[in-house]
C-alpha cells in the first residue's frame, strides 16, 4: 500500500513529536528538505566567509603564541564549514551548487562577517561575542531533528568553546594592559556588540519561517529567547573585566532575573543582509576570486586523477 503525501507528512510529524531523529534516507516533506538546505548552506557559508575578517589579522598578530592560536581558530572555521557542507550534501544538494548560490548572491551568510576588523582587539571581540553568540545558537541546533546537522553541531560546539574562551581571555588581558589597549578593547566592544545581538535574527514576530521550523524541531527556541540567553551570560562577563556595554538602556530586571536591552536597529540589519553592509562586496569578491583563481588547480588534479585511474 502506497501512503499519500498527507499520510506521510502526518507520520513524519508524529515521528518528530516523539523526539525521533530524521536521517538522510528517511522520507521528509520537500519543504523540510528545502528549509534545511537553506539554513545549513547559509551556516556553512558563514563559517567560510568568517575566515576572512579574522584571517586578515594572522599576519599581524602581536605575539607568536597569538598567531598560532588565531591560525588554529581560523582553520577550525574552515573545518566547520566543511562539516556543515558535508551534512547538507546528505540532503541531495552538491557543494558546488551551494557555493555557486553564495557567489551569485542567491544564498546568504551571517551578516556579522560584513563588518570590518579594524583593530587587533576585534579578534578578541569576534571570539568572545560572535563565537559566543554562535555557540548559543549551535548548542540549540545540536538537538535539532535532522541527524547529520545535529551531529555536525555537536562536534562544532566542542571546538567553538576554545574560540569563545580565547577571545575573552585576550580582551581580559588587554583590559589589564595600557590605556591604548583598553581603548582598543572598548572600541571593539562598541562596534561588535549590536551586530552580535543581530546574529540571532529578527524578533520572532518578524521572522517568517519560525513557526514552521519550530514545529519540525529544526529550531528549538525563538530568536528572542536565544538572544536573551546570550545577553544574560555575556553582560556579567563584560562587567567582570571592565568593559562597558554600549547600550544606555541595558539594565538588570530583579523580578524577571534577566537583562533588558535597548532597541536593536533592524534597519541596519536589513541593509547588511541585503548586501549594503560595510564589507559585503569585499567578502564576496574575495570568495569568488579564490574560486576562480583556483579553478586551474582543481581542473589539473581532476585531469591527473582521470589519467591515472586504476
Amino acid at each position: 500500500m502506497i501512503a499519500t503525501d498527507t499520510e506521510r507528512e502526518l507520520e513524519f510529524q508524529a515521528k518528530i513529536d516523539r523526539g525521533e531523529v530524521i536521517e538522510p534516507k528517511d522520507w521528509m516533506p520537500e519543504r523540510y528538505r528545502k528549509q534545511l538546505i537553506r539554513m545549513m548552506s547559509q551556516h556553512a557559508h558563514s563559517e567560510v566567509v568568517g575566515m576572512l575578517p579574522e584571517g586578515n589579522w594572522i599576519t599581524r598578530a602581536p605575539s607568536l603564541a597569538r598567531k598560532a592560536i588565531l591560525l588554529a581558530k581560523v582553520q577550525d572555521e574552515g573545518g566547520h564549514g566543511l562539516y556543515i557542507y558535508s551534512a547538507a550534501e546528505t540532503l541531495g544538494i552538491d557543494r558546488g551548487e551551494m557555493i555557486d548560490q553564495l557567489h551569485t548572491g542567491k544564498a546568504k551568510y551571517s551578516s556579522i562577517f560584513n563588518y570590518p576588523t579594524l583593530n587587533w582587539a576585534d579578534i578578541g571581540a569576534i571570539g568572545w561575542l560572535v563565537d559566543g553568540a554562535a555557540i548559543v545558537n549551535q548548542t540549540a541546533l545540536a538537538k535539532c531533528s535532522y541527524g547529520p546537522y545535529s551531529r555536525a553541531m555537536i562536534r562544532i560546539c566542542k571546538e567553538e568553546n576554545f574560540h569563545h574562551k580565547q577571545g575573552y581571555q585576550m580582551l581580559a588581558y588587554m583590559m589589564r594592559g595600557t590605556k591604548e589597549q583598553q581603548e582598543m578593547a572598548q572600541d571593539a566592544m562598541n562596534r561588535f556588540w549590536w551586530p552580535a545581538l543581530m546574529m540571532f535574527g529578527p524578533s520572532d514576530t518578524d521572522s517568517p519561517n519560525s513557526a514552521e521550523l519550530m514545529r519540525w524541531k529544526v529550531k528549538l527556541h525563538s530568536n528572542d529567547d536565544l538572544r536573551q540567553r546570550f545577553i544574560d551570560r555575556t553582560v556579567p562577563q563584560a562587567e567582570a573585566i571592565g568593559l562597558k556595554i554600549p547600550d544606555p538602556k541595558m539594565k538588570f530586571n530583579e523580578t524577571t532575573r534577566h537583562y533588558e536591552h535597548g532597541e536593536i536597529d533592524w534597519q541596519e540589519f536589513k541593509n547588511v543582509v541585503s548586501g549594503n553592509g560595510p564589507c559585503n562586496r569585499e567578502r564576496l569578491r574575495a570568495r569568488v576570486k579564490a574560486d576562480t583563481d583556483g579553478k586551474w588547480v582543481r581542473d589539473a588534479a581532476e585531469a591527473y586523477a582521470k589519467k591515472h585511474m586504476n
Binding site: 575566515m51 576570486k289 579564490a290 583563481d293
Partner: peptide, 9 residues
C-alpha cells in the same frame, strides 16, 4: 588563509 583553491586546501 581564506583564499585557497578549495576549502580542503
Amino acid at each position: 588563509c581564506g583564499h585557497a583553491p578549495i576549502l580542503e586546501e
